[in-house]
């Protein structure tokens, strides 16, 4: 009689698979089904970078970028940007943070040709010198559709009102980081 593995339900003929007359092709069907399922599952983190230097004083600038990343067709992703920050003065200032796609050919600091993913994703209000803040990561979903999409990703801070600049923190103890997570097949 055949043993059955607990995970895939594969049959293991006593005589050995290759030469067993009892062997029929169900195993291959099961392996194939599992391979297809595994291919659709989340692959987890597919890109990560951490930064250990502060930004300069940002008014409307690209703070960080990923020069090129290929999002594979028919999959879902999350792009995450996590940073602490502090303002340079004590005026009442409002900033928007966003994650954008941009053409590969564009210089990293260009602010044209940007397409904000999920719009302006976070507003930061700064009104006095209060030390460093942390608001939690910004997370935007991205699904490339039926074809692979290779794009530049730009993480932007944009002042909307006020007179202050914003400095994005990075040091050995408090890294600024961005990463891309594969969530699995697009549904």
């Amino acid at each position: 009689m055949a043993d059955v593995t607990t995970f895939l339900g594969l049959e293991k003929p006593i005589g050995g698979e290759a030469h067993s007359r009892a062997m029929i092709n169900r195993n291959y069907d099961r392996v194939e089904a599992f391979a297809i399922l595994a291919d659709k599952m989340a692959k987890g983190k597919v890109f990560e970078k951490s930064v250990t230097g502060n930004s300069g004083t940002v008014v409307d600038d690209v703070v960080d970028n990923i020069p090129s990343f290929t999002f594979k067709a028919n999959r879902r992703y999350e792009i995450i940007w996590d940073t602490s920050y502090y303002g340079t003065g004590n005026s009442d200032s409002l900033f928007y943070l966003s994650v954008n796609t941009a053409p590969l050919a564009d210089a990293a600091n260009l602010l044209t040709n940007l397409t904000a993913i999920e719009g302006r994703t976070r507003a930061l209000n700064w009104y006095s010198l209060q030390g460093t803040h942390h608001y939690g990561p910004i997370v935007v979903p991205y699904a490339p559709g039926a074809s692979d999409v290779t794009t530049q990703i730009k993480f932007r801070c944009q002042r909307v009102t006020g007179d202050d600049g914003m400095i994005f923190v990075g040091n050995a103890n408090e890294k600024r980081f961005y990463k891309i997570i594969d969530l699995g097949a697009q549904i």
Binding site: G53, N54, G56, D61, V62, N65, P67, A107, A108, N171
Partner: peptide
């Protein structure tokens, strides 16, 4: 708060990656 040193955008010409460097660090690359 750490001592404030202004940093500037510097783009790696090989990789098009953005860095924020001090003026001294930028001068050292030129």
């Amino acid at each position: 708060m750490e001592e404030f040193v202004e940093r500037f955008q510097w783009i790696d010409p090989q990789t098009n990656e953005l860095f924020w460097l001090t003026q001294a660090e930028i001068d050292a690359k030129d």
